[in-house]
Design a protein around this nucleic acid. Structure first.
Length: 153
DNA sequence: GCCAACGTTGGC
DNA sequence: GCCAACGTTGGC
């Protein structure tokens, strides 16, 4: 089993939004090849942190479970969609998405500041300089450390 | 709103 | 294949 981190701007889609869905939701709209390739490596049963970005308090706010392996992201085919990509019309498999299910919402978010202050997380990809990927792998060690931070807050 | 960092595009 | 220009991300 693998671990991941999924970024979303809470103003467009928050963990609370996923929570009220009460059903798996497609994680669509990713238009970066590295992030896409990470999604293609996801397997059902994998777990992910839900990270709120571009907001007042960037933080890991909870967990999701990957419940469906990658399949073509059809939002790329919709001219009315914000993430429309004409290249996908001739190559429908250009972009991928997975389905995620709500798993847990932490009582208190694990803030970016808190992550940065944790020596055990110094090598975390999320904290690497200039990182902008919206989908990132998380090591098993990092996963445990962050779960502990979430529990101890 | 600012700005650094990055991915992508396209001319050459 | 190089590289400048551009658009985007995301913390602050």
């Amino acid at each position: 089993m693998a671990y991941w981190l999924l970024k979303s701007e809470p103003s467009s889609f928050s963990l609370e939004d996923l929570m009220v869905c009460r059903a798996p939701e497609p994680w669509s709209g990713v238009r970066n090849f590295q992030a896409r390739n990470f999604m293609r490596a996801m397997r059902p049963g994998d777990l992910g942190f839900f990270y709120h970005s571009s907001c007042a308090k960037p933080a890991i706010v909870g967990e999701v479970e990957i419940v469906r392996a990658s399949y073509p992201d059809h939002t790329a085919l919709d001219p009315g969609d914000h993430h429309y990509d004409p290249r996908a019309v001739v190559n429908p498999d250009l972009w991928s998405m997975v389905d995620v299910a709500f798993k847990e919402r932490y009582p208190a978010p694990v803030t970016l500041a808190r992550l940065k202050a944790c020596p055990a997380l110094a090598g975390m990809r999320l904290l690497a300089r200039g990182n902008r990927l919206s989908v990132l792998p998380v090591t098993a060690e990092e996963w445990q450390v962050i779960r502990r931070l979430a529990r101890d807050s």
